[in-house]
Simulated scan of single mutants.
Amino acid sequence: MREIKNILVAIDFNETVGDLLSYAEALALKFEAKVWVVHVAEPNPDFVGFEVGPQYVRDVKADELREEHRKLQTICDTFFDESIEREALLIQGSTVETVVEEAKKLQSDLLIVGTHKHSFFHDLFSENVSLELLKKAEIPLLAIPIDED
């Protein structure tokens, strides 16, 4: 069995984040691993080929990113036992590619993601992030089914 020293947890800001982090916490305690909690924010408009716009638009986006990072840090500090080494990362980019790239950079041994239960038609016509991560990640992936009732 592979040694687990770095666990990457990719989260959205929703009510189910605790479910994912409880799995991460249990595994981190068992293996004495570090946990990286990652949230991927939307890329900057100029990154995806749009005009940047006036300065106030950039300032608003910067404020939103700072708030998301504070929220991510609070989640990281709230949900984990203090003995667990952990770090919160907010990264802008395309979700799947960014998570896969970050997992490589951090030398992650395990990737934990939530998987949403949707109808067949929803899955057929939308990007399923956890499925794409399963296809592209080069490390073991733990997909936790989550209900958003």
Rank of each mutant, 00 (worst) to 15 (best):
D109R: 04
V60M: 15
T74H: 08
D149S: 14
A33S: 15
I146P: 06
F31L: 03
K34Q: 11
S94D: 11
L134S: 11
N128W: 01
I146Y: 02
A88K: 04
N14K: 06
H118G: 00
H116K: 00
L20C: 13
Q107W: 12
I7A: 08
V52C: 01
Q73S: 15
R2H: 12
V37E: 01
V57L: 07
L27E: 04
I144D: 09
I139C: 09
L134K: 05
G114V: 01
E15C: 09
E101H: 02
Q55C: 00
E3H: 11
R86F: 03
G93L: 03
T98S: 04
A103Y: 03
L124T: 08
G53N: 02
P140E: 05
W36P: 00
A10S: 06
V96L: 04
P145D: 08
L89G: 00
E68R: 15
E67V: 10
Q92A: 15
L131D: 10
L89N: 07
F79D: 01
V40P: 05
A33R: 05
R86A: 08
L124V: 07
V52Q: 08
A88Y: 01
L133C: 08
L134D: 00
D123S: 14
S130H: 02
G114P: 02
E87G: 12
L134H: 06
E97R: 06
E25D: 11
K104H: 13
K117Y: 10
L27D: 07
V40N: 03
G93V: 00
V48S: 03
D63L: 15
L90T: 07
N6V: 14
F79W: 11
L21M: 13
E67F: 14
E148M: 15
R66Q: 14
I75R: 05
L133N: 05
S108L: 00
R86G: 05
S22C: 10
T78F: 06
E102C: 12
D63V: 08
L133D: 02
E15F: 10
K5M: 14
N14T: 15
A41C: 11
E32C: 09
A26T: 03
